[in-house]
Design a protein around this nucleic acid. Structure first.
Lengths: 118, 118
DNA sequence: TAAATAGTTTCCCATTTAGCGAACTATTGA
DNA sequence: TCAATAGTTCGCTAAATGGGAAACTATTTA
């Protein structure tokens, strides 16, 4: 456990690794928008915007639904929660490391601060 | 402000978008390690591991320092703080959206819940 | 000094990415 | 009905990625 699926996080972080896509997330954080509206801020052609949106969708960050001729995208509410969860896990690990380091610095004859074994 | 540099976040998230690299971060969260040690868990050849480590370094997630013939990598302590900061900012935005939605649902004659204008 | 070890650099390969123009398919609106 | 609008699909390009073998440069260590 704890490492749900690798591929899922791959897609999530990859989705966030592009400024245009993060811009779309920011835009969608203020409310739903159409493909065209999402394309404009980055001066993207529609096909390019669509690719980005597909990446965001595969990363689980946004949802979409088509009505008439316009497809409306919106934020996947729990999307950022996955980033947060991952982050919390690592920070836990780091805190442990620092705790050991502090313990090591505190009483000089304790074991080494972990990590350089083997 | 608030959006330090786009390229920087690009590199940060891109660094995290690969399972091997996240594995290296996890490993380093438990303490420093050599290139070889970091290559083993993923059964990577050294050149491949080096590439990943360079990506992590460019993403500001790790540091390295060479002594003798071994280069030792360690976590850049404030690395995850940048992810956290970005995350906090978005969550703030999302809360605002939800606040507005709640307000909208509360008293029916208020303005629309933002987003679909234009 | 000779052999083993740890990185490093240089190519090479297949795949993916980001971007777009063109052409096509609905829907709207006039 | 006809024209504009919003997406969508289909190539196509240039660049970046992820992987590694080969060959080379230090350092250790025997």
């Amino acid at each position: 456990m704890a490492a749900a699926q690798a591929g899922s996080l791959d897609r999530l972080f990859h989705a966030l690794s592009d400024a245009n896509r993060r811009g779309m997330v920011d835009r969608l954080a203020r409310g739903p928008a159409s493909v065209k509206e999402l394309a404009e801020p980055g001066s993207l052609a529609l096909p390019s915007a669509m690719k980005h949106l597909r990446v965001l969708e595969e990363g689980g960050l946004v949802r979409s639904q088509k009505s008439g001729r316009v497809r409306t995208y919106s934020i996947e509410p729990h999307a950022l929660g996955r980033v947060e969860a991952w982050l919390a896990e690592r920070k836990r690990g780091l805190n442990l490391q620092f705790d050991r380091l502090e313990a090591y610095l505190a009483d000089g004859d304790a074991a080494e601060p972990t990590g350089t074994e083997a």
